[in-house]
Design a protein around this nucleic acid. Sequence first.
DNA 1: TCCGCGCCCCGGCCGC
DNA 2: TGCGGCCGGGGCGCG
Length: 290
Amino acid sequence: MPELPEVEHVKRGLEPYIIGEKIVAVIFSEKVHQSHSLGKQAILKGMSIEQFTLLIIDYTIKGIERRSKYLLFEIEKESESSFLLSHLGMTGAWFVIDSLDGITESKFRSHVHVIFEFESGRMLVYSDIRRFGELRFLNELTDHSPLNGIGPEPFDENAEERFLAGLNVPKFHRKPIKEVIMNHQVIAGCGNIYATEALFRCKVHPKRSVVRMSMKKKTELFHHIVDVLQEGIDAGGSSISDYRNVNGEAGGMQHRLRMYGRKTCPACGSIVKQAVIGGRNSHYCVKCQR
DNA sequence: TCCGCGCCCCGGCCGC
DNA sequence: TGCGGCCGGGGCGCG
């Protein structure tokens, strides 16, 4: 599942291959066409396939950024710049290849849904097994409200201060800490896996309410979140489920997770407890996390 | 107006 | 080996 480290890795992987490439055509899969003809919007959101297909031609990719779990392709045509927003959902993956045979794993090759053809002959390909991902053309980033409320990026200079201020918002006071740190308004990009790990490392029970945490503990937690996200980036992301980088490779972080998906606690050997917190399946050790 | 809940989108994969 | 049911990020509708 792509969270911040995985999306950051995709961004870094794509960057050297796509900057300066000009889009000459785009092709959507039969499944995307079917979905749109039924009045749904699988993958391509906010406009029709026909509209997008005409609009995107002749745009040149100028850059790529990550914001929380969103990828933002900066594109330009006739000195007018726009954006292509991508969210990987649970199983989205981008590839830059010369032919579809370049996608070596059949489960990704058989779920290719968008192909951008470049003037150079290369292709930028989006594959998404479960089609939970999102692709959206934006004239301005402010046009898309989910982007506007995103909290601090964990590696921003003022992130700690803003994170602590976020926890201080009254509506969060009585909520379980896990639910709050997974809220992108409080901190960007921390999903179920990394929230679980940060709380385990910080020895904090995921159901602990925010008001029952000391300032010291909140600060400590912030640093654990940053550290575990950084470790995820360094390890190339975690390939729980279907994450793959631009070269089709799995990451290594799944082997470094100490609590997510575990049956026993690596610190004390207790049986790991599972519970739904804020609507998400959660793992924790009742002995180590208080 | 805000909140919480259930539902929906999907296909891989688990367990019977 | 076959098949029904579960899982999950995030948006949406409803009460």
